[in-house]
Design a protein around this nucleic acid. Structure first.
Length: 364
DNA sequence: TACTCGTGGCC
DNA sequence: TGGCCAAGAGT
């Protein structure tokens, strides 16, 4: 007997698990089929994957695993070593919390990750998603794992009209209703893989989807329009000046940023304030007003553009040659220009260094 | 609750 | 080219 059209069809977890068994991807942090996952690797990968693509996180994961093969070795390391290895991956509070979390696992749990969501949630940098993911994937506990993929899949399955982010609690409830008790780790990874490879944001491959039948967004003809969203605010543009101070021996002035806030704890090329009102076409003397040292400044050709999550930045770069005996001002230090790669230098400052080095080598 | 917090790839 | 997007957490 045919089912009435208005009767919702429940998505069948077994269909998804069968799809997962056929299409399971090999990822650097994923244990072989049947093998038990290492909680340390699961945790490390989940932290790195927060708001970060698999492609970007992969090389970092392998480098971390080689340098810090277990949680104890990571806990023993100086924070700066961790920041250096994390440089370029972004969201640097993750690196600071990663280090704090490793130390907490050693100090409070004898070097073994706890296996319950509640205990995991108490660890630095571990929120609702990550606690559930570790519980499910590393310990096969029936946790409801909800990330952006799962939210998108649920929004489409049930054609949720409420816009994000207000719809989050509703999507979580739906995810909990659909989730099976069996194979929690596999199911969690299956829902995320589905969102990452089939139920993608822009052009979902519904023809290949194991849940195409119960999906109400697909039935409606425009699955790519879910989840609904409210309009985002425009990204403001800020301006600033970076100061490249180079000695004849190739040493460059750098300094550490405050532990809290943007790029917290990372190394920087000295810059002045970043503000919307700064005019980069102002006279040289005005641009040099916040310089870290007195000197004969010149403006380098070109500018550095960089986009952060909540504002865009354009930097003018001023340079000056430092006398051999110049002492670094308080809070600053000299770093070898050709060893900046190994510093905990965020991308925006690597762009500054690239611009300055190009100009200096042209001159030389 | 709403804002802060990076980066690189994609179309 | 520029907005959008990625396995969110902290405050």
């Amino acid at each position: 007997m045919p089912q009435a059209a208005e009767t919702p069809v429940r998505p069948d977890p077994d269909l998804l698990l069968a799809w997962y068994d056929r299409h399971r991807r090999t990822l650097p942090w994923r244990a072989p089929v049947g093998a038990r996952a290492d909680p340390y690797r699961v945790w490390l990968s989940e932290i790195m994957l927060q708001q970060t693509t698999v492609k970007a996180a992969g090389p970092y994961f392998l480098r971390f695993l080689e340098r810090f093969p277990d949680v104890a070795s990571l806990a023993r390391a100086p924070l700066d070593d961790v920041l250096k290895l994390w440089a370029g991956l972004g969201y640097y509070s993750r690196a600071r919390n990663l280090h704090a979390c490793a130390q907490a696992v050693v100090a409070l749990h004898g070097g073994r990750f706890p296996d319950t969501e509640a205990e995991l949630l108490d660890l630095p940098g571990v929120g609702p998603y990550t606690a559930a993911a570790i519980a499910a994937i590393a310990f096969d506990r029936p946790a409801v794992v909800v990330d952006g993929n799962v939210e998108r899949v649920m929004a489409r399955l049930f054609a949720v009209e409420e816009p994000m982010p207000a719809a989050k609690p509703r999507l979580r409830r739906l995810a909990a209703e659909v989730a099976p008790v069996r194979r929690p780790g596999d199911y969690a990874q299956a829902t995320m893989d589905l969102g990452a490879t089939i139920c993608t944001p822009k052009s979902p491959a519904c023809a290949l989807c194991p849940w195409d039948d119960p999906c109400r967004a697909r039935a409606g003809g425009a699955p790519q329009t879910y989840p609904r969203k409210t309009a985002k605010a425009a990204r403001p543009q800020r301006f600033g000046v970076a100061y490249w101070v180079e000695r004849a021996d190739g040493a460059v002035l750098v300094r550490a940023r405050p532990l809290k806030g943007l790029l917290g704890g990372m190394t920087e090329i000295p810059t002045g304030a970043w503000d919307e009102a700064i005019d980069l076409s102002a006279p040289l003397a005005a641009l040099a007003r916040e310089a870290p040292v007195a000197g004969r400044w010149r403006r380098l050709p070109g500018e550095v553009e960089h986009v952060f999550s909540h504002f865009a930045l354009r930097l003018a770069v001023l340079a000056c040659d430092a006398p051999a005996g110049l002492k670094a001002p308080p809070g600053a230090r000299w770093a070898a220009r050709d060893a900046l790669d190994g510093e905990a230098l965020p991308s925006v400052f690597r762009k500054v260094a690239a611009l300055a080095r190009a100009e200096f080598s042209r001159k030389a």
